[in-house]
């Protein structure tokens, strides 16, 4: 029993972090129809920003989080302007964005490796290795903090999308781009801003990742399929779906890890991706895929 609770707690804690990692990806896909394969590499970039803030000046990763978010949002705008804006009107837009984001991921990885080498890094604030014990069950503080911060950020994002004028414009553009434009939404601005927010979320997630996982530039390859499985299970573009999928799959992965060994735990996500695409390609909250 204790082991089950323990596993559940670890699964939930990890799910919180994955939820933030996936929600930026989901937002960018929802609004821009960009399958951003570079998203995990930008999370790593956010982790490096946080790492150096901590290493050089001893700034707490949670304090560095907004910095990483802003830096990455800026990089997001730059990327959008340089790479995606000119493709937006191309007929092969979706195919192009897969290639372009793949290339972007390689460039980001290369640049990070060039600047910071391929050494494994981790930021180690005191709480990262702390834990609370309740009986024999322990809650790792680092993951707990990361999970809570992640949910707060997602909550703020959800409130922004639901209640603010611009947030409504983002949701409207996701659901019906032409209609939004006809009602006076500047869809190009919405595109840039959502891209900035999405990549900013990658930066924020990177700050959390920096003390939850050890990381190095090529680490992002491990996460591409993980994050894809979350976004696909959630229903492409649905942030709520992505969050639920993160918890669901992380909890399953935690149990798989305990019962079959940790090597299999990552497999959970790959297998899930495979099964979802076969059985319910629209995911939990997605639209039925169009054939066109």
């Amino acid at each position: 029993m204790e082991q089950i609770i323990q596993t559940l707690i670890l699964g939930i804690a990890l799910g919180g972090v994955f939820a933030l990692m996936g929600s930026g990806l989901s937002l960018v896909f929802g609004v821009m129809r960009i399958v951003n394969l570079a998203h995990p590499s930008l999370i790593i970039a956010g982790a490096y920003v946080t790492y150096w803030g901590f290493r050089l000046w001893g700034i707490d990763p949670l304090v560095m989080l907004p910095v990483a978010a802003v830096v990455l949002a800026g990089i997001g705008v730059l990327l959008y302007k340089l790479v995606f804006e000119r493709e937006a009107r191309s007929a092969k837009y979706s195919e192009m964005t897969v290639l372009l984001t793949f290339a972007t991921a390689m460039i980001v990885e290369g640049a990070l490796g060039f600047m910071f080498t391929n050494t494994q890094r981790v930021t180690s604030p005191g709480y990262a290795t702390d834990a609370i014990f309740i009986g024999n069950v322990f809650i790792p503080m680092g993951q707990l903090y990361a999970g809570i911060v992640s949910l707060v950020i997602i909550g703020a994002l959800a409130a922004f999308l639901k209640y603010s004028r611009f947030g409504n414009a983002i949701r409207a553009t996701t659901q019906n781009r032409d209609a939004a434009e006809l009602l006076g939404v500047n869809v190009n601005l919405v595109g840039i801003m959502s891209f900035a927010i999405g990549i900013g979320l990658a930066g924020a997630a990177g700050a959390l990742v920096s003390f939850v996982f050890s990381f190095f530039p090529a680490k992002h390859w491990e996460w591409v399929a993980v994050l894809m499985s979350l976004v696909v299970l959630g229903g492409m573009g649905s942030i709520l779906g992505t969050v639920l999928a993160s918890f669901l799959l992380s909890i399953i992965a935690a149990f798989v890890g305990v019962w079959f060994g940790s090597t299999w735990s990552t497999m959970t996500f790959f297998l899930a991706l495979f099964l979802i695409l076969l059985v319910r390609p629209q995911g939990l909250f997605g639209e039925k895929p169009e054939l066109a």
């Binding site: 409504n168 949701r171 409207a172 659901q175 019906n176 032409d178 209609a179 939004a180 006809l182 009602l183």
Partner: peptide
């Protein structure tokens, strides 16, 4: 104002 054929609603709002 233009109301296109597809009615231009936001189905999940």
């Amino acid at each position: 104002c233009f109301v296109p054929q597809e009615r231009a609603l936001f189905p999940k709002m």
